[in-house]
Nucleic acid binder design. Structure first.
Length: 310
DNA sequence: AAGAGGCCCAACCGCGGAACG
DNA sequence: CCGTTCCGCGGTTGGGCCTCT
């Protein structure tokens, strides 16, 4: 953590000898009190006004962050529950690193918190998980169906996960015991350009346009809970059609203090997702080009969060 | 016991977009 | 329009704590 600015003497000693310099670093309890009192009495307005009017030697940005991530009364504290964990994983598979979007679906949790949780706990576990699986290069590299994709995008759920392989079966047994692992089984893994391991639905990794057919029930698919592995080892995730929408009301309610300005650009374009037989047909499908809000209307409620493979 | 190294997480930074004058 | 300011987001940093040796 950052130490408080030396000139400000973590609370007591400072006052007005700060010669207009804005403080940085950790917030003192006194600063917290000031901000909290101001916010409770005046509500949220222009953050630079908040900083000024509350008598804080902080920039508005810092005040905003402190309020959102720490002082907000509706914040939930403590460790993430396994349900929250599952939800985070699931949402991340849908949304990628859109932490604020994910946080909006977890009442009482902040994007920062979720991001930290992901970058420490979950990422680490996914890493351990993948390192426990034999590399495609070393196991059965002769298979033409190996789906080896490093680099910026591409699913790292390769074809050696073929259910007939004994080694992969062992890996799967290992994975199934863990919510993250089983989710990875279903949704695949993606290594993003920043090195993050993401569980990403197949259709989000495509960068082609126009009418992708997303196979759902092919004869040779590998089914795993919500997801389906296609013939080429790629993983398909069906749209969120059969899940509860109760979260939506909850999240919009708890985030009522927040102006709903984000993702307006994204919402300008909508996805055409229609079911045709056993296929989901998607028009103009590209990362960030569908109506996220609409898509996320169907984010599973906690009750439906069971990613364990039967 | 103590030093090293890793982890956690609060807070900062930089950027892009929206709002405003 | 255009420039400026504000806001929110995601990525990154770094200090304190914990664990290991």
């Amino acid at each position: 953590m950052r130490k408080p600015e030396p000139s400000s003497g973590a609370a007591a000693g400072n006052k007005d000898n700060n010669n207009n310099k804005l403080r940085k670093g950790l917030w003192s309890p006194e600063e917290d009190d000031k901000l909290m009192n101001y916010m409770l009495n005046n509500g949220q307005g222009c953050w630079s006004d908040v900083a000024r009017n509350a008598g804080l030697q902080r920039c508005g940005k810092s005040c905003r962050l402190r309020w959102i991530n720490y002082l907000r009364p509706d914040l939930k504290r403590g460790a993430f529950s396994s349900q929250e964990e599952s939800l985070i994983i699931h949402l991340h598979s849908l949304l990628g690193n859109r932490w604020s979007q994910i946080a909006a679906r977890l009442p009482g949790r902040t994007d920062n918190e979720i991001k930290n949780f992901w970058n420490s706990t979950i990422k680490k576990r996914l890493k351990n998980l993948t390192s426990s699986i034999p590399s495609p290069n070393t196991s059965d590299s002769s298979s033409p169906k190996d789906h080896v994709m490093g680099g910026s995008q591409g699913i790292i759920m390769p074809m050696y996960m073929d259910s007939s392989s004994s080694s992969s079966a062992m890996a799967m047994n290992h994975m199934i015991n863990d919510p993250i692992s089983s989710h990875v089984l279903e949704h695949g893994l993606n290594m993003s350009s920043n090195g993050y391991l993401n569980a990403v639905p197949q259709y989000m990794t495509h960068h082609h346009h126009h009418h992708h057919q997303i196979g759902v029930c092919g004869d040779h698919s590998f089914h795993g809970g919500n997801g389906v592995f296609g013939l080429d080892g790629e993983m398909f995730v069906p749209p969120l059609e059969s899940v509860s929408i109760e979260e939506k009301a909850k999240s919009t309610e708890t985030n009522g203090y927040k102006k709903a300005t984000s993702n307006t650009t994204m919402n300008n374009r909508t996805e055409n997702l229609s079911r045709i037989g056993n296929y989901w047909e998607v028009d103009e499908l590209r990362m960030g080009e569908w109506d996220l809000e609409e898509l996320m209307n169907d984010v599973p409620s906690f009750a439906f969060l069971d990613f364990q493979v039967q």
